[in-house]
Structures are given as structure tokens and as C-alpha cells.
Nucleic acid binder design. Structure first.
Length: 123
DNA sequence: CTTCTGACGAAAT
DNA sequence: CATTTCGCCAGAA
């Protein structure tokens, strides 16, 4: 399967309400895709897209500085996401648990490999 | 075909 | 902590 933005969107769709992931986390699950590419792809989505673009943050927990950042902050708050005094999201408290078995199977990925990657996020 | 444009991130300083 | 450097790619024009 060719690597394109649809692959990225499909993975972001896996992040459930109340949880967050970083651009880097998403990229780490997609060989050949870099953090920057993830952000670039999400930027092409419309405000009303079904894909939860607002749950993706910078590795520091900061919301990417751009027009619409405030909008993203509101969405996150509505989902119960908590922030630190520096205005950054406390990723450790809401870290996404990784893709579902459905996604892993649908994308023909090795479950063990995925586990390794996800385990790395916590360190 | 070539050029331009981005929601990043780890490491070094 | 704050800044700087450099790597990387799909898609639109």
C-alpha cells in the first residue's frame, strides 16, 4: 500500500475522545512518514472533518502555534483534557494507548512491533 | 517535470 | 529553560 495522507488520517481516527497523541507518536507507527508530514496532512483537513485532528499535539504537549490554535484548545477542554499552567497539555495524563487490533490487522502490521513502539512512548 | 509549501522533533549549543 | 540546525515527503500549482 502506498504511503499517503489517507494512511495518516486513518491512524488519527484511532485516537479516542479524551486521549491525545503527538505528531511524532503518529509518525512512529508509520514507516516512511515523519512528524512534519503528519502535521502537514492534518492541516489539509477542514474544521468539520470527522478526523480528530485536535487530539494531535506537539511532543511537548504544546498546541501548534497557528491560526485556529484557540479553537483546538476549546475542543480539548470539552473532552476533559487538562492543561498545565504553561498552557500545554499534560500528555502523560492523557496519552493515547495505541491503535486498535482492528487497525493493526487491517494494515497488516505485526502486533509485537506495534507494542514495542507504543511502549516507547512512555519512556 | 520542477518548485513551493507546510499542525514537527531530537540534539546541540 | 530558549534558540538553532537539519532531516523528510505528499500534494498542489
Amino acid at each position: 500500500m502506498a504511503i499517503n495522507n489517507d494512511i495518516i488520517f486513518a491512524l488519527v481516527d484511532e485516537v479516542p475522545k479524551g486521549q491525545v497523541a503527538s505528531y511524532g507518536m503518529i509518525a512512529s507507527l508509520l514507516p516512511g512518514v515523519g512528524p512534519r508530514q503528519v502535521g502537514s496532512a492534518l492541516g489539509k483537513l477542514g474544521e468539520r472533518s470527522k478526523t480528530p485532528w485536535h487530539r494531535i499535539l506537539q511532543s511537548s504537549g504544546a498546541i501548534a502555534d497557528r491560526v485556529g490554535a484557540e479553537r483546538q484548545r476549546c475542543r480539548l477542554k470539552r473532552e476533559g483534557i487538562t492543561f498545565r499552567k504553561n498552557a500545554a497539555v499534560d500528555i502523560a495524563a492523557h496519552r493515547w494507548g495505541g491503535p486498535s487490533p482492528i487497525w493493526i490487522a487491517a494494515n497488516e502490521r505485526d502486533p509485537l512491533e506495534i507494542m514495542e513502539i507504543v511502549a516507547g512512548w512512555g519512556r
